Simulated scan of single mutants.
Amino acid sequence: MLAAPIPANDKERLAALRALLILDTPPEERYDRIVRFAAEEFGVPIALLSVIDENRQWFKARVGLDVCETQRDISFCGHAIVQPDIFVIEDARQDPRFADNPIVTGEPRVIFYAGAPLLEPSGHAIGTLCLIDHEPRTLDATELAILASLRDLLQEELSGGNEHA
């Protein structure tokens, strides 16, 4: 297993994340609605709004997953935030970076992963909108565009103010 990389600008990224005042806040319908739609639109059992802090991946909104956080070093989203665009793993069992990852070999049995990095207003990737399936799959150009549009909606919500603060 290849641990999730630490971005070169992680100190600044973490400061930008903290400034959003979103970590460890209660669920909010405005985020939940978009994540529910993503799960339904793509027909996946798991969809998440994941936020990456120093040591963990915390889920602001989630469908199909009971836990509210996992370790950053085993997260797929930790890999996605250092990508310039949507990060797709069609079959994690066949990818040497993930094949022996405990969330692939055990629960929640991540086989397919697609993560669209979420940028906060100054441009730091703070997390992802991600789709997870227990079966291998691909996304075509239209599906990638839909995922990017949903990511854009979440980014607008994140930059639109902190009504929960």
Rank of each mutant, 00 (worst) to 15 (best):
L154D: 01
I34W: 07
R151W: 14
C77L: 12
E12Y: 07
E40V: 15
F42T: 00
D32I: 03
I6E: 11
L23R: 13
P27M: 09
D24S: 05
C130W: 05
P108S: 11
T138L: 10
N101F: 10
D140A: 02
R137N: 02
P121T: 11
P7K: 15
E156V: 10
T138V: 11
P117D: 12
R36H: 14
P136R: 07
I22E: 01
R33M: 03
V110I: 10
Q94I: 06
L153W: 15
S122Q: 14
F76L: 01
T25C: 14
N55A: 13
R36D: 08
L118N: 02
F87Q: 12
L21Q: 14
E135C: 09
H79R: 15
R33N: 05
G115H: 04
L2A: 11
F98I: 03
L147A: 08
L158K: 01
L14P: 02
P136T: 03
L129C: 08
H79W: 14
L65N: 06
E143P: 00
R18W: 14
H124C: 08
V51P: 00
N55D: 07
D140N: 07
V51W: 13
R151D: 12
A47F: 14
R109H: 13
A148Q: 08
G160D: 02
V110G: 02
A15M: 07
P7T: 11
L23V: 15
R30Q: 03
F42H: 01
A4V: 05
S75G: 14
G115W: 02
Q57L: 04
R13S: 06
A114R: 04
A15H: 10
A114W: 07
E41F: 10
E163V: 08
A38G: 04
F42W: 08
W58T: 01
E12M: 07
G78W: 04
F59Y: 03
I6F: 09
A114P: 01
E29R: 13
A148C: 15
S122D: 12
V67W: 13
L17V: 04
I86M: 05
L154T: 02
E107F: 15
R30K: 15
S149P: 12
T138N: 08
P27E: 13
D24T: 07
E156F: 14
D100Y: 12
I22N: 01
H79P: 09
A8V: 11
T142F: 07
S50G: 01
D10W: 08
L65H: 05
D85L: 04
D95E: 05
P45F: 05
L118P: 03
P96L: 04
N9Q: 13
L14Q: 08
F112Q: 00
G123W: 14
L147G: 01
D95I: 10
I52T: 00
D100I: 09
